[in-house]
Structure formats: structure tokens, C-alpha cells
């Protein structure tokens, strides 16, 4: 169980990205975070694995206080939390295999890993991860030689290498077209069904309805909704996304539905 209590983030330039956000995520949930661009979704997800240090508030995972974890402990926590990004965040010049192996850094012997020496089991694991996302044949390609959908699959394979108990997915499909979006989210759904907790930020209402087990909505850093996906109808969506965005949202939703 992940518990977020009174989370607040103020950036050094004074932007208040999160205001007193609290919620809980039970193991095995597929929690979707929605909200306009700039509403604080990325900040929230990055606070959970402390890529961003929250200003105030507390995040506990089972009985561990993530917010108070010292560096070594934090790295042990992070290695159990996979992360998938909107821009894939692959090292473009490195091979697909190297990018996937990066997912193992938290477990590997630090010195051997610096020399690029990996245990054979990790290599097998990487091959399996790539097979699982269907791009085993691309292992030796440079990451930037792949299409967007393929790159995101590498991103998922990298997260899989961590054998995570929790996956944070920050708008994993915002850079992909609708068909690819479904195939990527399908992988996340499968992982979720195998017992992984997933926290995922999304933009499109139909995707929210299709994949989420629970939804929270942010607006200007404030949690404005928490509930089941079925509770979000057009009116609620309009409320969350504001009057201006409704037309755009509505048509996008229709187009991808």
C-alpha cells in the first residue's frame, strides 16, 4: 500500500505544483491520474520515487517512509519502482540492449556495472523482457533507430528488468497514435494483472475508462476528484479540464474512441 499524505511541492522559482495532495493506492490497483497539462501530474509521479523532493508531506510504501529515506535506502526503493516516460527517455546513442540493461543498475554490482560486466542471468532476463514486448530482434539496434512505439516498448522492458512492484507511467502514450497507445497500455494492463501496482497519467477519457481501476484528478496542483472511472462522465471531465479545453478534449476523445 502506497500512502501519500499532504503532499506539497513548491519549485525554487515559486511555482506551486502540488497543494496538499493525499490519497492511497492499494497493491494491484491501476490508478490513473488525469489533469490538464501543468496540473502537476509529472511532479506527483516524480515525488513518489523522489526524482523530485517534495517540499512538504509524506509518502510511505508499506511501512517504509520514502520521503525520509537516506540515499542508499532510496536507491533500494527506486529499483523496485519502474518508470515509463512520455518521451521514452532512452539513451539514444546506446543500443536497445544497453538501455534495457540499465534497468538492472540498482541490483548489479556497482563496480562491475561501470565496466559493463553483467551477470549472465541479467542478460537472459533482458532477452526475455524484449521478447515480452515483441522487439527481441531489435536488441542490437541503436535506440534512436526505432519508431516511437518501439522505443516505448524498450522503456517498458527497461522497467521490467527492475522486477518492479510498482510502475509509474508518466503519460506513456501521449506521444503515440491511438493504435499504438492501446498496445502499450495493454502491456501495462498485463503487468497489472500479474500483480504489479500501476500509477499512470493519461489524457484521453476513453483510455481512462478502458484501463483504470481508479482515478484521481488534479487541477492546478489540487486533487479535485478521486473515484471510479465510471464516475467520470462528460460533465465531470469538463469540470476537470475546464471550459476552454472541453471542445478539444471532446473531439479528441471521439476521434480515438
Amino acid at each position: 500500500m502506497l500512502r501519500i499524505q499532504n503532499l506539497t511541492k513548491v519549485y525554487p522559482n515559486g511555482t506551486q505544483a502540488l497543494k496538499d495532495v493525499s490519497f492511497e493506492v492499494k497493491d494491484g490497483e491501476f490508478l490513473v491520474v488525469i489533469g490538464l497539462s501543468g496540473s502537476g501530474k509529472s511532479t506527483l509521479l516524480r515525488c513518489i520515487n523522489r526524482l523530485i523532493d517534495p517540499t512538504e508531506g509524506k509518502i510511505t510504501w508499506d511501512d517504509i517512509d520514502i520521503t525520509a529515506a537516506p540515499p542508499a535506502e532510496l536507491r533500494r526503493i527506486r529499483r523496485q519502482i519502474g518508470m515509463v516516460f512520455q518521451q521514452f527517455n532512452l539513451v539514444k546513442r546506446s543500443s536497445v540492449m544497453t538501455n534495457v540493461m540499465n534497468g538492472r543498475l540498482g541490483y548489479a554490482n556497482p563496480w562491475l556495472s561501470l565496466l559493463g560486466i553483467w551477470p549472465p542471468t541479467d542478460k537472459q532476463r533482458a532477452v526475455k523482457a524484449l521478447e515480452r514486448v515483441g522487439i527481441a530482434d531489435k536488441a542490437s539496434s541503436r535506440a534512436d533507430a526505432l519508431s516511437g512505439g518501439q522505443q516505448q516498448r524498450v522503456g517498458i522492458a527497461r522497467a521490467l528488468m527492475q522486477e518492479p512492484r510498482l510502475v509509474l507511467a508518466d503519460e506513456p502514450v501521449a506521444s503515440l497514435d491511438p493504435v499504438l497507445s492501446h498496445s502499450i497500455l495493454h502491456y501495462l494492463e498485463q503487468l497489472n494483472k500479474e500483480g504489479m501496482t500501476v500509477i499512470c497519467s493519461l489524457h484521453f477519457l476513453d483510455l481512462v475508462h478502458r484501463y483504470a481501476t481508479r482515478v484521481i484528478a488534479l487541477k492546478d496542483g489540487i486533487k479535485v476528484f478521486e473515484g471510479l472511472p465510471a464516475e467520470i462522465d462528460r460533465a465531470k471531465f469538463k469540470e476537470i479540464y475546464g471550459e476552454e479545453a472541453q471542445e478539444v478534449r471532446a473531439t479528441t476523445v471521439e476521434a480515438s474512441a
Binding site: L51, R78, I81, L90, N102, L105, G106
Partner: peptide, 8 residues
């Protein structure tokens, strides 16, 4: 950021 997130 991505490499950091793996616990490196």
C-alpha cells in the same frame, strides 16, 4: 532521469 529512476 530514467537511469536515476532505476536505483543507479
Amino acid at each position: 532521469e530514467a537511469v536515476k529512476a532505476t536505483g543507479a
